[in-house]
Design a protein around this nucleic acid. Structure first.
Lengths: 246, 246
DNA sequence: AAGTGGTCTAGACCACTCC
DNA sequence: GAGTGGTCTAGACCACTTG
């Protein structure tokens, strides 16, 4: 990127931190390794580049956030597969992943009825503390965790839900076919976030790794909230795509 | 979050790193301080909690990524303003920010004609190396940088663009009113990313802070690409919202 | 048991801001 | 010059995986 005709008065005094040079050298090593190949251990890289191990770790940390590397405690650090790109649309998780050649699956980590907290009760337009069905699932692609999805539904609005829902199956299909609920629209919000230690554990990742936090409220044709969802996706493994019309 | 009926075989053995406890204590301090108030210096916090300074730094780093704190070298660390939420729609930056009570502005950091790189030429459906107009601007809210937007347009498709465009004004209005270009649809992709040192400098932030990278290709009614945009937004300061219809 | 990444320490120097 | 956050070092111990 040379280029300059207009320039704001930005100094840009070539100072780059040392870990940035290390990052460039590791990036060059990655280019010569195939996907899944192990990177040399951090201690070796530190010795080879004659820097401290924590300097190597900072470089590796950034490459991990960028989705180029993937570290596993006790095993090593490996060249990562390219990021998955998921379309933003009403209920697309399994089809979208299958289209990209991944095998999608889900693991249920919670399925119960709990009192609604403030945010959930506001989103679902029910009283605070009213009972809500809570379904939490880990979303996987080829067995690797990509996201953690927590869905909340008003229990009194769907009194038979706990009986008819198979928590491992499709929530949408069950709601539509068993309960006749029609999805009309959703408001979805995306931002960066960090995982809690529990969430990081479920996602088999590290709490320092940035996540994409998606919060969604879905409504039926009358505008009544059907569900609110809090989903945390691994920022190093997935991105989202949407099509906008004028 | 107690709750458990279904449980995957996740250990969840209460181990939390020490920096996580420090983070909770700093969060409690933040709650008692107002927006814009200074946090005690890192060295003081380390002494008060009897931990190493780098442990405090890791906690502060996560709170910064989460948008709760904002550090400025040489000055201190401050309680941050809440995140801005920007609607995902075709051309909304100024109106959306004004609706939220912010004063939007832009700074031009580059405006020139350059040969298209591989990605840009593919996105614009032109030959590699063909000339493209490149407009790079910093987007600000109340004088604070929120994003860095790089727009590329095929120079041969809009031969008078460099003459009629005021780089500080609205690109959309100029294209529509001066050149009669009609926006029909756009494909937008969002993922996490890191800034380069130059980008971090322009955004007055730190290269380790996760960003939201948005890449957009806009098309006219005939499907011809009008522009491709690479925009980097500060993950600690902005999120995006979209409305989906069935 | 050996080797890996994850956390933590104690201390140093640098770059920047303010007085 | 004093005080701040940003980078870097050298070393330690822990948790986890594999042989």
């Amino acid at each position: 990127m040379p280029s300059a005709a207009f320039r704001s008065g930005v100094p840009d005094h070539g100072r780059v931190p040392k870990y940035y040079a290390v990052k460039a050298r590791i990036l060059a090593e990655i280019a010569e390794l195939g996907v899944g190949a192990p990177l040399p251990p951090e201690r070796d890289l530190a010795a080879r580049y004659t820097v401290a191990r924590s300097t190597v770790r900072q470089a590796i940390s950034e490459l991990t956030i960028e989705g180029r590397l993937s570290a596993r405690q006790g095993r090593g650090t490996f060249v990562a597969k390219p990021k998955v790109i998921q379309p933003l649309s009403l209920h697309s998780y399994t089809e979208a992943l299958r289209d990209m050649g991944y095998e999608p699956s889900r693991t249920v980590t919670a399925f119960d009825v709990v009192p609604a907290g403030d945010e959930v009760s506001a989103a679902l337009a029910i009283g605070p503390g009213a009972p809500v069905v809570h379904l939490e699932r880990v979303l996987l692609a080829d067995g690797e965790p990509l996201g953690l999805e927590s869905t909340y539904l008003a229990a009194e609005r769907y009194p038979t839900l706990m009986d008819v829902l198979d928590p491992a199956g499709s929530l949408y299909r069950c709601m539509q076919e068993e309960l006749g609920v029609v999805w009309a629209e959703a408001t979805e919000r995306i931002e960066t976030a960090l995982a809690s230690p529990r969430e990081a554990l479920l996602l088999q990742t590290n709490p320092a790794l940035p996540m994409l936090l998606m919060q969604r409220v879905s409504r039926d044709p009358a505008g009544v909230p059907i569900e609110c969802v809090r989903a945390l996706y691994r920022g190093d493994r997935i991105g989202f795509e949407t099509r906008l019309r004028a």
